[in-house]
Amino acid sequence: MSPAIKLIAQRIALGLLLLFLVSILIFVGTLILPGDVAQSILGQSATPEALANLRRDLGLNDPAFTRYINWLTGIFHGDLGTALTSGQDIATAIGSRMSNTLFLAFWAAVISVPLAILLGLTAVRYKDRWPDKLISAVTLASISVPEFMIGYIIMYFIGVKLRWFPSVAMINDSMSLGEKLSAVAMPVMVLTLVVLAHMMRMTRAAILNVMQSPYIETAELKGLNSFMVIFRHAFPNSVAPIVNVVMLNMAYLVVGVVVIEVVFTYPGMGQYLVDHVSKRDVPVVQACGLIFAAVYIVLNMVADIVSILSNPRLRHPK
């Protein structure tokens, strides 16, 4: 077996183990949260009997271990449980929210990743000259301003003054792709600005690091122009760090967009989670937590696998 396959298998096994540990952590974490679900459902005026009945019905009197096993078995069967507050099936509710979040994240990624890499390559090509400085200044400024601020600024100019796109990003299944894209245009812009700087600067740093290598000199002495040297010879050797930072930002696009969702009242996962945290709806919080953790773990696993595959020493052993 080639070392690459072995390493990838190890990495996947490690990811699964990590996910399992995180599930325990989430379960224990929600256990020790203060407050009582039954109390919050029934309100302050509930009688002790009613509370006891509800606790029994919800299975809150079972030992924690039994509840954890029940929860985990349910997840393996695609059953994330029932929301305590609304009585809805969580999987169904999350399904549509998740697809909205992924839709937004996907378009933000499609625009920001190639743009960040292209800007990174350009910054290397014109290192310490005005294009490099301009790119650095603009991306740094965009990451420094709080994202809700960028959101409102863009909303004010593009949504209110220019009226190009709607300022509220409501989408539903009956809309066509074009309508959906128009609806998410502004949140996508904001997210792009937020994740661009990190990825672009990492691309620039990773490639500059490789540019010191003797094989870059070899490429220059073949008479290749700067962009060919960077793209053909430096870029393939800096894939690993770039993919790592790209994946971290992808995870952020899925997990960390709650502020943007609130600003644009976008019906995504983040809002759903925040709503149910405030209602103490523990099963929903657990389900969302587990999904977010899974997204992080899977994306980082993908980054590691790409790093392994980008290393010719592991791909083609002696």
Binding site: S213, T218, H233, P236, N237
Partner: peptide, 12 residues
């Protein structure tokens, strides 16, 4: 170059 090991691009 003096060190061919360093002067060849490891990724190609």
């Amino acid at each position: 170059a003096q060190s061919a090991a360093a002067a060849f691009n490891p990724a190609k």
